[in-house]
Amino acid sequence: MAGGIPIMIEGLTKQFGPVTAVDDLSFTVEPGRVTGFLGPNGAGKTTTLRVLLGLVRATAGTATFGGTPYHDLPRPLETVGTALEATFHPGRTARHHLKVYATAAGLPAARVQQVLEMVGIAEFADRRVGGYSLGMRQRLSLAYTLIGDPGVFVLDEPINGLDPEGIKWIRGFLQALAREGRTVLVSSHLLSEVQQSVDDVVIISKGRLIKSGTLSSLELEAAPRTIVDSPDREKLSEALDEAGLAYTEGRGGFIVDEHDPGVVGRAAFLGGVELSALHRLKSGLEESFLTLVGGGEE
C-alpha cells in the first residue's frame, strides 16, 4: 500500500456554462481519518471529486493529492482508489470489468480475484454486470477502488443501494482503512448516513464551503435539545416557564432548548408535574447539519 497523502482543494471553482457548481472551495483531507464530504443534492460534491480526479477541468483553482494532480500521478490506481457513480458495460462480467482496468494500470491479474472476494461478489463474478442489483454494482465499484491497494480513497455516495449488512460492512471497512493510515474521503447528502463512521466533516452548500472540522466540533454546535411530555401539558408548560426554559410544542411533547434532560426533569419536579416522556432529541446533529446547509430544500 502507498502511504496516505492529503487531498488538497485550493480555491476551486467550476462553472458549467451559467451554472457555478463549485465556488472558490478550499479544504484539506488528512490521512489516517475518515472525512465525510457533505452537502445537499446539487451542492457540488460530485463535481469537486471529478475535478480532483482529472475527469472535469477546473475553471479556476487546484485539486491535488499532496500537490500532485491526478493526471500527473505516476501510478494512479495504486495511489487513489475511486468509486464514483457505478458505470459498467452491461455485457461484460465483473471479473472482466476489473481485468480490463487492471491491465491498463499494469496491475497483476491475480488482484482481480482478491478484490472480488474482499467485497463479497466473487460468486457472481462471471455474470454479466447488466444483471447485477444496485448493491452488487456498488460492491463492484468498491472492488475497483481496492484493486491497486491505494493509500487514498475517494468514494462518492458509496452507501447508496447497500443493504443494512452492506452498510455496516462498509462503515467498519472505511474505519479500518483510515486506521491503517490511509486517506478516506466519502461523500453523502445525509449526515446521519456517515455520522457513525466519520472523524472529520467538510460541509458544502451551493458550491461553497460551509464548515470543515472534526465531527465532535460539529456535535458541540449541534446543541442537543430535550423532549419532555406530560399527561397535563398545561401544567408542564407552566413549570417550564417558571424555570425560565425556552421551548416549542411539538407532536411528541415539548422540545426544550436545553441539552441536559436533568435540568428539565428538575423543573418538572419543582412544578409537581407528572412526566410521560423525558429524553434527549437524538437528531440534533442532523438538524444542525440542515441548519448549516440552509434547511436542505428551499
Binding site: 480526479l53 482529472g54 475527469l55 491526478y70 493526471h71 500521478l73 494512479p76 490506481l77 475511486t82 464514483l84 457513480e85 458505470t87 459498467f88 458495460h89 452491461p90 470489468h97 482496468y101 491498463a104 494500470a105 475497483y144
Partner: peptide, 22 residues
C-alpha cells in the same frame, strides 16, 4: 462510442489519465 454510451470513460480515464494514450 460505447465508452460514452455506457459512461465507462470514468473507469477508463481513472486507470489511464492520459487520454491521448487511451
Amino acid at each position: 462510442t460505447g465508452e460514452f454510451r455506457h459512461r465507462t470513460l470514468t473507469p477508463t480515464f481513472l486507470a489511464e489519465p492520459h487520454r491521448s494514450i487511451v
